[in-house]
Design a protein around this nucleic acid. Structure first.
Lengths: 152, 152
DNA sequence: TAAACTCGGATATGACTTATCCGAGTAAAG
DNA sequence: CTTTACTCGGATAAGTCATATCCGAGTTTA
C-alpha cells in the first residue's frame, strides 16, 4: 500500500492558498516549498481537474481555491491527486478454479472484499473529518502571511 | 492508493489452509483457485517469511498455518504481502523552501503527517478486527472440505 | 539407494509513478 | 491598439516498483 508523493505537496499548497488573497502561480508555490516547479505543475493540474482550485491565466495569474478552506477535506485532495478508485479490487477468485462456488452463493459480496472495503471506508472517514482550515489552524499564520507578501 | 494483487490470493489461501489438516503444496493451492502457480509461489514465500505459514519440503510437503485461524488477522496477511511500512511518508516540506518553519516548531509531527497516520491507524484497526476464522465462517465449509479431499 | 517432489531465490517483462519540457492562450502595460 | 511578458495545459522521456516466470538446492518417501 502506497500513496503518491504528490499528495503531500498538494496538501501544503492548499494550505498556502487558503491564506493567500491573490492568485499564486506555480513557480511561486514551488519556491515556497523548495520543490520542483515542473513536477508540482502536474499535481496542480490534477487539483484543477477535480475542481478544487481555479486557474487564472496571463500576467499576475495563478491558482485560487474554489471553495472555503473549511469546505475542502483532506480526502478531497488525496482523491484528486491519487485517484478515487478503491485500493482493493476483488477479482472474484471464489468463482474460479476447482473450488468455485455456485453462482447462487455469489449474490452477496465476497467476505474478503467486504472486509477490505470496510477498512477503506474507515480510512476515508478519517481523512474527510479534517479540512484545509483545520490544517491551517495548526500553523503560525502570521509568519506565513508575512512570507507570502515577501518580494518575488 | 493501491494494494498489491497478491493480497487477495494470499487471503484465500489462508482460508483454505485453515480447513486443511495436511500440508497443501503450492501447485494444489494454485489449481484450487485457478491462478498462476509460479506467481502464487512468490506470495506464499512472503507469508512464510512473515511466519504465518510453515513449509514442509519433500514428497507430500506443502504449507501449514503456524497459528490457529482465530489468531491470524487480515492485517497480518496484508502486511506480510504488501509490506508493513506506512503508506504516507512525510518528507518534512515545512522545513524547506522560503516558508521553512524554525526547527523549534518542528518537535511535534507535521499536521498533515498526523492526519494521514491517524487514517492509516483506522484502516489497520479495521483489518485487525477480522481473523481468518471469521472469513472461513462465511463459507460453505462442508463443500470446501469435500473439494479439498478430491483426488489430485 | 534412488527417485520424485517440495520450496527458495535469482531472473525477464510490463505498467505505473516520477520528472521534464515546450507550445497555446490570456491579461496587463505601454 | 500593439506589444510584451507571463500564465497554464498537454504531450513527452526516464526511472522505479509490481508482475510474472523459471530452474536449482534440499528433503522426504518408497
Amino acid at each position: 500500500m502506497k500513496i503518491s508523493g504528490g499528495v503531500e505537496w498538494s496538501l501544503h499548497c492548499c494550505v498556502v492558498l487558503s491564506q493567500a488573497e491573490d492568485p499564486v502561480p506555480t513557480a511561486r508555490l514551488a519556491e515556497l516549498h523548495g520543490v520542483s516547479k515542473s513536477y508540482l505543475a502536474k499535481h496542480l493540474q490534477s487539483l484543477a481537474r477535480a475542481g478544487l482550485v481555479r486557474p487564472t491565466e496571463g500576467r499576475d495569474g495563478g491558482y485560487v481555491l474554489t471553495r472555503a478552506p473549511a469546505d475542502i477535506t483532506v480526502l478531497d485532495v488525496v482523491q484528486a491527486v491519487d485517484g478515487a478508485g478503491p485500493a482493493f479490487r476483488c477479482t472474484e477468485i471464489r468463482q474460479q478454479g476447482l473450488l468455485a462456488a455456485p453462482p447462487e452463493q455469489c449474490t452477496a459480496p465476497c467476505g474478503i472484499a467486504k472486509v477490505m472495503a470496510d477498512a477503506e471506508r474507515s480510512w476515508r472517514d478519517s481523512l474527510s473529518a479534517v479540512t484545509i482550515a483545520d490544517l491551517a489552524a495548526t500553523l503560525d499564520l502570521a509568519a506565513l502571511k508575512q512570507t507570502l507578501q515577501t518580494s518575488y
